[in-house]
Design a binder for these strands. Structure first.
Lengths: 303, 303
DNA sequence: GTGCTTTGATAAGATTTTCCTATCATGTTT
DNA sequence: AAACATGATAGGAAAATCTTATCAAAGCAC
């Protein structure tokens, strides 16, 4: 049934097989087997395309419903054991994971030693896909996320600061505002990262043509570039201590209203593990709080 | 899940294994496996008894619902192919099967050559059990049957006649009524057959103490006994031609209002194969009609 | 057309799962 | 005490499922 669901979703044997984590022949065989026992075609394979047959259309909602019920069953079972006692598969976006995880995991280990955490790092769109198909139980990502299937719980705010080279004294001359960011020197993450879009939104969108078009693959490489004087970038507060500590860099807060991103925990609306998620959200909020910078720290980073 | 359902029903490993058609160790292992993956006890095994744990109670309705949905899925698939195209597992009580089947099967074969009929012969209570747990799709039995899970469709009436030895001339002296049946000579089927109870109901219940307590295992043996002068019995009309034809026997209709049984087709209320069942009921009615006796035939049998 | 890519089906062999028979341990009944 | 009933365990067989490798057909580039 999972294979049927996947194939009905993708209408493509290979992609469905990938989604179901099996080889394409295995999926083919199972679909063929299913059609045999049912005694009718479920999919019409015209050349070049796969389409649901009438029978397939009729059965699809039922099968989806069954799969949903089974998943809910698993969740109830997990829930029954107590808060955060069952395996939790958590997705985290790459601009949060490396900073949050080292704080969150020990904290969880301390309070919930039985909990098995499985982590996955990917960009928001991938995580949402994984969440929807039930391969993840929850994800940590930047808001807003709007999706009827999902419940979104805001967890903490993460302000943006400017990271630039230690030699760069220009940024000290006047208070840093969103308008006077030197966009022509702005370095960004590669496409797909929400932080890239947020950075563009923060800095005045009018000058975007002048962008340096590079696209770093991670926060760490991006800041490596910054520290080597190749430009400046927005850095989320939670990343500062980990990244700026051992690099020659200057970190400048914005003047006035500081731009920030809101980070939330997201799960499937019909999930039965509400308590788990609320508890987890609380832990994440506490972990994030420890990553916030004090005044002295900020002054030091400003050099 | 089927095993879980069976065990929750029987609260007994052996009986559950039997119901699920597997060996007891197989069921034990699967339940143990299920408890392991869920991480909690599903059943509490105190000495001498098996009880659903709280977790088990919580999961039971969900699992039943899933099993029900899966069965409904199969039925929809079967139905979609057209009327009476999918395997039909039919249960028939022993006092009908041997007479109806030889007429019904050829008829079905003619009109629905693709149909695969699987027949099972057992007493009503066994058939109902099998129907409820989904091992049969429908049953043919004597009414009344009252069960919230089931739908009952009356199909035909089958009157009772008196069968006695060919030498027995007493029965010819006066018109045969329900009151003057020689109950002390009445032979019956063994316990469990509904025909036994019906025969007792037909003949005045006041004299039941005088019963010959034998209990034949089948209509054929019963009539064998009758033809050897060991007594008399009630014979359903549909059985007469097959049984009385080659035996020395006298068949006498009741005078006045003839006692009869009503035969119905019964299926699970939630089954999706309504059309199949209506069609099948029609075929059964037609088959039964061919077993009805004509006037001349009756006269001949009276000798 | 000839080669190249894509797509789903097929084949063969390995792996995993599930099952069955036989047996055991424990408590119950006679 | 002996026979019985009940669920767990062990060992090996059977069945289902998966993976890799390969194929055939169709679309596409040249």
């Amino acid at each position: 049934m999972r294979y049927f669901d996947a194939l009905a979703t993708t209408l493509h044997f290979r992609k469905a097989a990938e989604m179901a984590h099996v080889s394409q022949p295995a999926l083919s065989a199972q679909i063929a087997e299913m059609e045999k026992t049912i005694g009718a075609q479920l999919f019409e394979r015209t050349q070049r395309s796969v389409v649901l047959s009438e029978m397939g259309q009729r059965l699809l909602p039922r099968i989806r419903s069954i799969l949903r019920e089974i998943r809910s069953l698993e969740e109830i079972a997990a829930q029954k054991r107590g808060v955060l006692q069952a395996r939790m598969r958590l997705g985290i976006i790459p601009t949060i994971a490396p900073y949050l995880v080292p704080v969150l995991i020990p904290k969880l280990r301390e309070h919930y030693p039985v909990l098995k955490m499985e982590l996955k790092e990917a960009v928001t769109s991938k995580l949402i896909e994984n969440l929807r198909i039930g391969e993840l139980d929850a994800i940590v990502a930047a808001l807003p996320i709007e999706d009827d299937m999902l419940t979104v719980e805001p967890v903490f705010h993460d302000r943006f600061l400017i990271a630039t080279s230690a030699n760069d004294n220009d940024v000290l001359s006047s208070p840093m505002t969103q308008d006077n960011v030197a966009v022509e020197r702005l370095l960004l993450l590669e496409e797909g990262h929400c932080l890239r879009d947020q950075a563009l939104a923060v800095c005045s969108a009018t000058k975007q043509r002048q962008l340096v078009n590079y696209g770093a693959t991670s926060m760490a490489t991006l800041l490596q570039m910054v520290s080597h004087g190749m430009g400046l970038t927005l850095i989320p507060e939670i990343a500062v201590r980990a990244e700026a500590g051992h690099m020659k860099m200057r970190i400048i807060p914005f003047a006035g209203t500081e731009p920030r991103r809101e980070i939330g925990l997201i799960w499937r609306r019909q999930s039965e593990r509400q308590d788990d998620f609320r508890t987890l959200a609380q832990c994440i909020a506490e972990s994030a709080a420890t990553l916030r910078l004090g005044q002295e720290e900020l002054a030091e980073l400003r050099k």
